[in-house]
Design a protein around this nucleic acid. Sequence first.
RNA 1: GCUUCAUUAGUUCUAGUGGUAAAACAGUCCCUUGGUACGGGACAGUCUCGAGUUCGAUUCUCGGAUGGAGCACCA
Length: 646
Amino acid sequence: MIEITLPDGSKRSFEKGISAHDVAKSISEGLARNVLSAEVNGEIVDSDRPIQEDASLKLLTWNDEKGKETMWHSSAHLMAEALEFFFPNIKLAIGPPIENGFYYDVDNGDEVISSEDLPKIEQKMLELAKQKNSYERKEISKDDAIAYFKEKQDPYKLELLEDLEDGEITFYSQGNFTDLCRGPHIPNTSYIKAVKLLNVAGAYWRGDENNKQLTRIYGISFPKQKELTEYLDRLEEAKKRDHRKLGKELELFTFSQKVGQGLPLWLPKGVQLRERLENFMREAQTKAGYEGVITPHIGSKELYVTSGHYEKYGEDSFQPISTPNENEEFLLKPMNCPHHCEIYKSQPRSYRDLPIRYAEFGTVYRYEQSGELHGLTRVRGFTQDDAHLFCTAEQVEDEFIKVIDLVLYVFKALDFNDYTAQISLRDKVDRSKYIGDEANWEKAEAAIINASKQRELETEIVYNEAAFYGPKLDFMVKDAIGRKWQLGTIQVDYNLPERFELEYIGSDDQKHRPVMIHRAPFGSMERFVALLIEHCGGDFPLWLSPNQIAILPLSEKFNEKCKSILKLLNNYDIRGFVDDRNEKVGKKIRDAEVAKVPYMLIVGEKEVENDTLSVRKHGKGDQGVMKIDAFVEHFKSELKELLTVN
RNA sequence: GCUUCAUUAGUUCUAGUGGUAAAACAGUCCCUUGGUACGGGACAGUCUCGAGUUCGAUUCUCGGAUGGAGCACCA
């Protein structure tokens, strides 16, 4: 007999060699039906694998991430089986589960597999799934494995085998398909009830661009048809919120072939939005002790040679521009920090001056490869809400806390309630790749951890993710439909103070090197606005909305009156427009709704007589009649509610 | 940059085609002056660019540009 410990701590005795599936069966039939795989003493295995000794056991179902992975991994095998049916000579590379579904990288020679082939592959998969073929595990010697794939003429599997030792090689088979695989897999193919192949794309073998490019087919599967439908609905919703689509519809920004790819053009309404965000940040920063600085868009090449950026990125960057006569070279600025370092250096500094906090909405230009440009999230010219803090090593923790507070303030004001933080530290072992002395690193890493603890951030510590010049703290937010975005970086830098020979005079009358902290709560205005658009689906918070009100005259007779009402409301800092087109109110309302204007104010004979407005709220409908003063009050209190945080 | 797919009015759009093309919305003008998601009519506007094949190309071929999906990249 062996003792099995379940996650709730309860222990049960079973015959030696019992499987996870049987354990589940002893609890309930329903559970047994839903078990996809199992975690036995921390190892994920097939649910029918015999357990030979006392063990802790976690049954994995669709509700566990690991259970989903098992399902998707098995689905990748099923897809491979279907692919071999249609393309007998296809060569298979790797087919792992991913965050949402699975893929298989394949090499089909000269025969292109396109998205048009996907439906029939999907159909075949469902057909095969119904056959209820079990996934059979088989341990196999390395020689036999090599022989098998030589026979199959699959160079990719053979390459994978090179890295494996005899004794750790297993094959899994289902139906007419056998694959080199560590497993585990679901009991049989019938667990896969719904399949959708999503797209086809190129991917390099082993992720290396020097290798051959394979065809990657992405798909996702579910144990219930309904869940697939829901998933596809979610994809639809994401499409509706796509900032590229909404940006065009709401006239926020545009691109022009003539101006150049990756260079966004901000339209008036987009500028309204962006400037409000900038002013919001400026105000918060001023309160937090920042001082504004402004630096030019180009800087001499020497500046970046000093900073080290030229050596690291010079080749892969916009090339220097030179002056016609003197032949001096200048670079478009890819970062603001070197400029800010020079500002720091413009006069001698005392420890009494520190911390110094320089903030700038600095526009930078970076050469991004054409394939990576994407809407506003990846562009070649963008504006960072950048700031650099110069402080003593002792002040790092305090400064971190202050920056965290600023970031959290922004999150609250913009309704990002679901966020986590990631602390990136050095590699635990190899410390040779980092610049700056050991003691300082220790101090800074501890400072970041302490600061996060003090502010009770939900953090994850990741080793070997720090930059060579310092540790960092990144915020991840989840948007309204659950997608994760990286936002807001705080980064310690030992490199630039060194390279620029920054100094301050300490209380001991000796020269010391300050620590520099980079931080950007929004990251870049472009990326942040993109995120914001997708987060709120274009329905911006009232304080950010480009047009807060649309005044809709019932007929042309009231146009003049409406214009004077607009002027009046403008005096209360309420912005909007009068829709004086020759259309019926129904039409005007529809257009204002589509344009996502928060408030519609309808003015006809009754309103003119009583000095009132007929108020309609976007997405909510008719709100009844209000005196103009009352509306202003109402409006102001809503604004206040939105912007009052803490 | 690589793979693959795509590109028709300002926008949307598997209308369509080897003989210069349609719809909807937006726009302009006219009629209508109307009470809470599109009143009616008229007008104007378009085939991504270059080369080739052809009597003739938006349509076929090749190449470029841009865009989508992904890979690689991301100070």
